[in-house]
């Protein structure tokens, strides 16, 4: 049986990830070197420390979280 709740959540999560990337310049103006939590295209919490951010979120496992920084980082995984 299809789980509409999970499907909707995945779509929202994906949109939130893309939203951060699309709005990174404006986010840098206010949240430089902070972790931000985004839900539905809105910042719902921020903190320089990730552990502290978890405490501000009612449900981290279902929240998009990324670090906003001007520090470039090349990744070779």
């Amino acid at each position: 049986m299809m789980n509409e709740g999970v499907i909707e959540e995945l779509r929202t999560f994906e949109e939130d990830q893309v939203w951060i990337s699309d709005h990174i310049e404006s986010l840098l103006g206010r949240y430089t070197d902070q972790w931000v939590a985004v839900q539905g295209g809105q910042i719902v919490a921020s903190d320089p420390a990730l552990d502290a951010l978890w405490q501000k979120l009612p449900d981290p496992a279902h929240t998009c979280v990324e670090f906003v920084t001007r520090e470039p980082l090349e990744m070779i995984l």
């Binding site: 995945l10 999560f13 981290p60 496992a61 998009c64």
Partner: peptide, 8 residues
């Protein structure tokens, strides 16, 4: 445990 992840 359950949640959503963004996989590269």
């Amino acid at each position: 445990f359950e949640g959503v992840v963004w996989l590269l």
